[in-house]
């Protein structure tokens, strides 16, 4: 497997290279002290695996992940597992390793990256997975909170955050509507405006260009209205 290393700490890069040298199937092509240089490299070169430090000043590991168009497999390197939680939303994240790296754990992660090929080959699509899962976890103040999907009635974009409104409680999460939309079953949820996703089962009434859900009146974009009407069970 051809791999690259991205870590702002020289020490971490040397350690990773040392560990990679112990695994015959790994070939370290390059190592980078920042994500920007790595992006330039990836624009011209193909790699199979990236070892990525999450906590880097400026453009951090998560920014890097979001910038990838055709991401290869990624193993995260971090000294704080909480930083890795958000990144695990992505299928191509194989594992995360805590600093200081231990060889046995490192070997396991490499093994996992080989197994991941099999999982991808089994053709499990996002949509089929979305249909099976009935809940997901959100990270708030270093805690993972389980959210029951049908209990969500509204999700609203608020700058860099989203507000998830459920039957029992509201949650503010550092994420985007696009990311959460990928996790929601299409059968239940619809994005009706650039700032709102609604649970179709929770609609009370629809009037002109707005929808009433609980006590919230939500605008419907003109472009989203046909899709909304199509999805309703009209008499």
């Amino acid at each position: 497997m051809k791999c690259i290393i991205i870590d702002d700490e020289k020490m971490a890069r040397v350690i990773l290279k040392t560990l990679c040298n112990e695994i015959q199937s790994l070939e370290v092509l390059e190592d980078f002290p920042n994500a920007i240089e790595a992006i330039k490299y990836l624009n011209k070169n193909r790699v199979d695996l990236i070892f990525l430090d999450i906590h880097m000043p400026g453009f951090n590991g998560l920014d890097f992940i979001r910038s990838l168009k055709n991401p290869p497999k990624i193993i995260l390197i971090t000294s704080d597992p909480n930083f890795a939680i958000e990144a695990f939303e992505y299928d191509f994240i194989i594992d995360y390793l805590l600093k200081p790296l231990q060889f046995d754990r490192f070997k396991k992660a490499i093994e996992k990256s080989k197994t991941k090929n099999l999982t991808l080959a089994s053709n499990e699509t996002n949509s089929s997975r979305k249909a099976i899962e009935n809940d997901f976890y959100i990270s708030i103040d270093r805690r993972l909170i389980k959210i029951d999907l049908p209990s969500i009635y509204l999700i609203e974009a608020k700058g860099d955050y989203i507000k998830i409104k459920t039957e029992n409680k509201d949650y503010i999460v550092h994420s985007t509507l696009k990311k959460i939309e990928e996790k929601l079953p299409d059968s239940l949820f619809l994005k009706i405006h650039r700032s709102f996703i609604i649970n179709l089962k929770k609609i009370i009434d629809i009037e002109d260009n707005s929808v009433l859900i609980k006590k919230d009146v939500i605008p419907v974009s003109r472009s989203k209205r046909p899709e909304l009407m199509k999805r309703l069970d009209l008499l």
């Binding site: 700490e9 020490m11 971490a12 350690i15 906590h55 000043p57 000294s79 600093k99 200081p100």
Partner: peptide
């Protein structure tokens, strides 16, 4: 915070 984070790795090593 950034400075502490960087030193932290060496502490563990």
């Amino acid at each position: 915070e950034e400075n502490v984070h960087r030193v932290k790795h060496k502490i563990s090593i």
